[in-house]
Amino acid sequence: MDVPTTLNGYELIYKKPSTLTEKPFHYCPGCGHSVVHRLLMEVVEEMGIQEQTVGVAPVGCSVFAYDYMDIDMQEAAHGRATAVATGIKRILPDKFVFSYQGDGDLAAIGTAETIHAVNRGENILMIFINNAIYGMTGGQMAPTTLLNQVTSTSPYGRNKEAMGYPIKITELLAQLPGAYYVSRHAVYTVNAVRKLKKAIEKSFAYQKLNRGTCFIEVVSNCPSGWKMTPVESNKWLEANMFPQYPLGDIKIPKD
């Protein structure tokens, strides 16, 4: 959409990136997914790499990510985004390839593909949205669901004896030599969004170096699944998610 560059003598200083399509996001009010979509496309626009970028969408709430990002994309089967991204990157080694997955997709059904893509040091950017719940199917327990957290399949709270522990897959992946840059972020405040954008910029720049996988976890909210208002969900995220999933760089390039 073309917006005027001036308004009553004021200058345009922020508009929707041209790399997003016209389609309004279908996400629930306050959901972090679309902020991450937008940041990816802002970086693609600013780096001028729309023609060189191919993305992979997951199964989950962001299954329609390709409806919003105005780039060539593939829709992967549940959990297989990084295998699909591997196939793309091997055929198109000079292109920027990223995968985009939620917690169930990346850290449960797709754990093998996730670990081995990083272990091979595939030169891709893997975006991991962790909101501790299966949003699309109606709020079931995810591998990252916190202990005692109530979901539709842990109605009495996640208990470790029967359901195991919330998996810190990002720390696990950082152990692998194929991981080049591993960082955990959030989109709950202005500063957090700015930091995430920097991390995405760095990851795309690193991809050109062919040194390994860049992995960004975004600790995000699910107001509908958590049964909270968006503002409450961001407060809950800060109080409950960050102690388990602390923000910051987990592995940074040595050179």
Partner: peptide
């Protein structure tokens, strides 16, 4: 290119990605 995948599941999805990328 030849790649020994971590499973047949991964291999066929690499095929999906690579075929989709025109390979």
């Amino acid at each position: 290119i030849v790649l020994q995948a971590e499973s047949e599941v991964a291999a066929i999805n690499m095929i999906y990605g690579a075929a989709g990328a025109g390979g």
